[in-house]
Design a protein around this nucleic acid. Structure first.
Ligand code: SF4
Ligand code: SF4
Lengths: 146, 146
DNA sequence: CTAATTAAAGACTTCGTGAATCTATAATAT
DNA sequence: ATATTATAGATTCACGAAGTCTTTAATTAG
């Protein structure tokens, strides 16, 4: 029971992109280097973010990635869902001819718990985060990005 | 990103045991049958619950399992932790010589979110659940158990 | 037009872990 | 002594995460 590494890469990359000067793009190579992951693999992750509409990609010279959604409109939950999918953490794979699933008590608790987590992840946007981040970390990231 | 089936088995078994007449034990076979899982595998799961102090096991004739903690003192989180462990869902496996982990913004959000889920799971006890459960489901379970 | 650049896509490999089985071994009651 | 029951160990199987390699497609610079 763990978040995948892909989610980690996605979150970090979004932060990197959010710190780019508006309009500027960045290729997968520096992003991969900064996170110590192979470019081809990171590219697969980023493609999911493209398909989900958070970032845009361009081919050829001066191609690369850039944010196309405002940082204040991107929540942690958005990114996680884009990578991990949206199926719930708990599901009794059991045969439901046995009894009525409607008033299932276990499932209800487990799903409600997951909702609590999702509510919080939905409340935290990337912008919200950028405001908190230490200035010297920002500079360090910017130095990677430029 | 899913809870393991073992967690499912553990939760259901605890409910079964909670509906047993006090002092009475039940073997792994009927429990496994009710959940359509192999006895040997379920036994491995239950051993974890024994080691965690929720249930007790006895060998030989009239052996089997029984609850030794009051249902009101067993939370969902307890059971989940006993099976899944207690490591957090998110951890950047990254090299932390790069920057200060103390003011890490991503980790902070992810862990806080997990806390929200755990808070709820900690608030829900087995007893709390037994009160809500439909009477005919109780009877059905009792028929399995007896 | 051509060559260089860059992302996307597909096939494939590797690795770890969940899930499960089988086979002992130990403990206990009758 | 024998039947019963849980525990432990070794082992197998399947699946998905993680990553590599190669090809294709799109775009820009010259
Ligand atoms: S009680 Fe809930 S989780 Fe269990 S089998 Fe029924 S529907 Fe599924
Ligand atoms: S920003 Fe946080 S999650 Fe990312 S590498 Fe630093 S400590 Fe780890």
């Amino acid at each position: 029971m763990k978040y995948s590494k892909a989610t980690n890469y996605a979150l970090h990359t979004i932060v990197y992109l959010a710190l780019l000067p508006p309009g500027k793009t960045i290729g997968v190579k520096p992003l991969a280097e900064a996170q110590k992951v192979s470019p081809t693999y990171l590219s697969k992750v980023l493609t999911k973010l493209v398909k989900s509409g958070f970032i845009e990609s361009g081919t050829g010279v001066n191609g690369g990635y850039q944010l196309i959604k405002d940082a204040k409109d991107i929540t942690f939950l958005d990114i996680i869902h884009a990578i991990e999918g949206t199926t719930s953490l708990f599901n009794c794979g059991l045969d439901h001819t046995i009894h009525d699933r409607q008033n299932c008590f276990i499932e209800k608790v487990m799903n409600e718990a997951e909702q609590k987590m999702e509510d919080y992840l939905r409340s935290q946007t990337i912008e919200h985060i950028l405001q908190k981040v230490d200035k010297n970390i920002v500079n360090r990231i910017r130095s990677v990005v430029n």
